[in-house]
Amino acid sequence: MFEARLLQGSILKKALEGIRELITSGNWECSSAGISMQGMDPSHVALTVLMLQNDLFDQFRCDRNVTLGLNHATFSKILKCAANDDIITLKAEDQPDECNLLFQSANDDKTSDFIIKLTDIDQETLGIPDTEYAATVKVPSVEFQRICRDLSQFGDTIIISVKKGCVEFSGTGEIGSAKIALKESGNVDDDEKVSVEMDKDTPCSLSFASRYLNYFTKATSLSDTVTLQLCPEHPLVVSYDIGDNGSLKYYLAPKIEE
């Protein structure tokens, strides 16, 4: 028996918005530790990893591991029936072929009860190696969303360059080129801060497809800040924390010199 109750139902709604355009369906693995889902887009350029730890839920029970094979378009349609301040409960039997979704309105005068049919998805899971990142950058998530949108007007590639105390985003194309530089902000307390941590002082610069970066920023509403981790000849990691007990992470393979 699996049952998980999420007081902040909007978390699930927002997470689906950040997933459904990249991964059409996925196995949501439920265990006593929480719920995790991992999947790649059809062209295997980006890997999306969702982690919802058990203490994100105010009630969580998972007697035996349960796999929920979900079609994300369907899941998203059902979640659209939930109000942002609804409590959402997920329930499934052991070896389930369906999942029960319960939405309770904040003032408890409306409950919606949905059954979603599960599908068998044989999806390979990738092992994510520990990596020493050359640079870890934190920027306001709305700022990152705006930069990706603005630069993708210039071309299909965005170059992210990090050097001491500064991160630069640039794009070039037929119409011209653009470069946006963010300096590490002094006032480290507020959310508007930009922080740039370098492993060594060697600057690093990688090229990425702007289309995918714009897919990732669909998750912007999950967190005020987004963390970018870069390492030469490695995938970029774009992470949105979900409170203190979850995250939606994207790994994007770089464009490399032929």
Binding site: H44, L47, E124, L126, G127, A209, H234, A253, I256
Partner: peptide, 14 residues
Amino acid sequence: KQVQSKMTSFFGVA
């Protein structure tokens, strides 16, 4: 010229 690499060339199947 830059080519798009694939995630599967960085992370192996677990």
